[in-house]
Amino acid sequence: MTDINIGISTENRNQIAEGLKRLLADSYTLYLQTHNFHWNVSGPSFRELHLMFEEHYTELATAVDDIAERIRTLDVVAPGTYKEFAKLSSVKEVDGVPAAEEMVDILTKGHEQVVRTSREVLKLAQDGDDESTAALVSDRMRIHEKTAWMLRATRK
């Protein structure tokens, strides 16, 4: 393969990719949690939450692909194993099957964590003059902020 020359230094590409790896791990962990909760939610809010969680994990499935492909575009290998994601993720795993209300709270915190990770990566992208990553991460932040708001609204 030829050397990459997209106007971003090797050092900046590597730093940005490391941040994107964390964002990918957070997003994938949140995807798994959301899918798990979709399968296992029960109670009076079952239908509403079951359908909402499906919308969320479907959106996250597309997001993880976009993030991984951006890492590859920067000429860095994207992580792709549970072991790697567990090391990189700031989203905490949950044991067992919590009650529906607790699922909503856990997912809200997960989306908020992804926003915080996104903010860190956005700064790296801006500092590295990487508008493509900045646009991707900015879009991710907006989606996760909105999703967290929607989840919080179900608890009022």
Rank of each mutant, 00 (worst) to 15 (best):
L136W: 08
G7Y: 04
G7L: 05
E120S: 14
L136K: 15
L151I: 01
V41R: 01
I143F: 11
L122C: 09
R72P: 03
A68K: 07
D139W: 07
Y57H: 02
K87Y: 08
I6K: 13
V114T: 10
S27I: 05
I6N: 12
H38K: 14
W149C: 02
S45K: 13
D26V: 06
H56C: 05
H35P: 08
S132D: 15
E48L: 15
V121L: 10
T81M: 03
T58P: 00
L24R: 03
T2F: 13
M103Y: 02
T73L: 10
H111L: 05
E69M: 08
G19R: 07
E102A: 09
R116Q: 13
E102L: 02
K109Q: 11
A153H: 10
K156S: 14
L107R: 00
L136Q: 12
Y57C: 00
Y31E: 08
P98R: 00
G43T: 09
D3E: 14
D66K: 15
E112F: 01
E48I: 08
V91R: 03
V76I: 09
P79N: 10
Y82C: 05
N5G: 08
D105G: 10
A25I: 09
T29P: 08
R47V: 06
V114S: 06
T2N: 13
G80W: 03
L107A: 01
F37V: 06
E11W: 07
M141A: 12
N5R: 14
A17F: 06
R72Q: 15
T147W: 01
E131P: 08
L32Q: 07
T154W: 01
G19W: 03
E120P: 10
A78C: 02
G128C: 07
R116I: 07
T2Y: 10
G7M: 04
I143P: 04
N12T: 11
A86N: 12
K92F: 00
V41D: 03
E54M: 01
A68W: 05
L20Y: 02
T73Y: 15
R116S: 11
L107Q: 01
G80V: 04
R116L: 09
L23T: 02
E55A: 08
P98V: 01
E48C: 02
S42A: 12
K123W: 14
E84Y: 09
V41E: 02
Q15C: 09
S132K: 15
G7A: 07
A99P: 10
W149M: 01
L122K: 11
L151T: 01
H35M: 09
D127V: 06
D129V: 07
Y28N: 08
P98K: 02
L107V: 00
D127E: 14
L49Y: 09
L30E: 03
T147C: 01
D95Q: 15
L30Q: 07
E11R: 09
A125C: 06
E54Y: 00
E101I: 04
W39G: 03
S132Y: 09
R22D: 07
G7T: 04
R13Y: 05
M150D: 04
K21N: 13
I71H: 00
W149V: 00
G96E: 03
D65Q: 12
A86Y: 10
T62E: 12
A134V: 04
R142P: 05
F37C: 11
D130S: 10
N12Q: 14
R142C: 07
A153F: 04
S27N: 11
H111A: 06
V41Q: 02
L124P: 01
E112C: 00
S132G: 12
L60M: 11
